[in-house]
Amino acid sequence: MHGRTLAAASSVVIGALLLPSLVLERHPAVWDWLASFRPGTFQAAEGALRASPHREREVVVLGSSVAVIDVIDPALAAMLDRPVLSAGVMAAPVCATAMFTPALEARRPETVLLVVGMRDLDRCRPNPGRLAFDPEIAWHAIGAWRLASDDTWLAAALGGASTLVRHRAAVRMIGHPAGPGWRLHPRYTGRIDDDGLAGQLDWHAPRLRDATLDGDGPSRRAFARMSARLRAIGAEAILVPAPLHPRLVASTGGGAGTSWHPAHLRRVAEIARDTGARHLGAAELGEYPPEDFADPTHLTASGQRRFTAALGRALR
């Protein structure tokens, strides 16, 4: 092989990714355009964070599907009498959500509510079932870089590179079965039947060990940095574990047949304490009966109302 030719071609490909998207990302119209995507996508979340004007006493809700589905942002805004911006992203672990930190710093909200699913604080890798060349890998890399680096130019360039990738993923996310209007989707309007629940619990069983959050992980490190940077701008970070189906809570897991859930809650509280974030637990949020769940980890419409009301009370 001819080394110089290979280096030249690699440079062209990297340049193709970086330079044009750097220009795009610095153009304000891009954020309006991105904000027009479906809720629950990275595009919409970052677009909304950057495009809409700053609002006093704003609450920004971040997290994965549990933030997108379980928290009804207009209802929360009405209860708190404060503006609420939902910037949750379906299937995004905290390390990916952390890529919004620069946008949050620019926006300066008063409160950042991070609703975490049972594995969101641990998981920071592409889903193996989705195989490779997944844009989430790029997101994770960009998110990690943005947090790790204060080099604005490089971070913006890498962020710009991801704009093209993000657009591509938006198309995929819009094709998600939960499609438009997440909360109105039939999947989230009724209680899950016993057969469906049993199947999903089987799916979750081997993954419960991850939810006990043993050891350090990129999502936890990302949250620590994000929390510190939010504190620096005077914003309060609040960590909220999402409600889980009672049968999932009762499952044994986490190794050696021990119950996983107390360990999970304890670790989430420890992470909040260690990172200087506020923590809302079962005492503030209450417990949720089986009929409130559309699946083991997501709420039905009634559950969403109950959870949002509990959040509102806790924040007031």
Partner: peptide, 22 residues
């Protein structure tokens, strides 16, 4: 022309590539 072609192919792959299957 090389830069244009490689840039075009890169963009096509990034923008219009569907989720990769095996």
């Amino acid at each position: 022309a090389r830069i244009a072609l490689l840039t075009g192919l890169t963009w096509l792959v990034v923008l219009f590539g569907a989720q990769t299957r095996p």
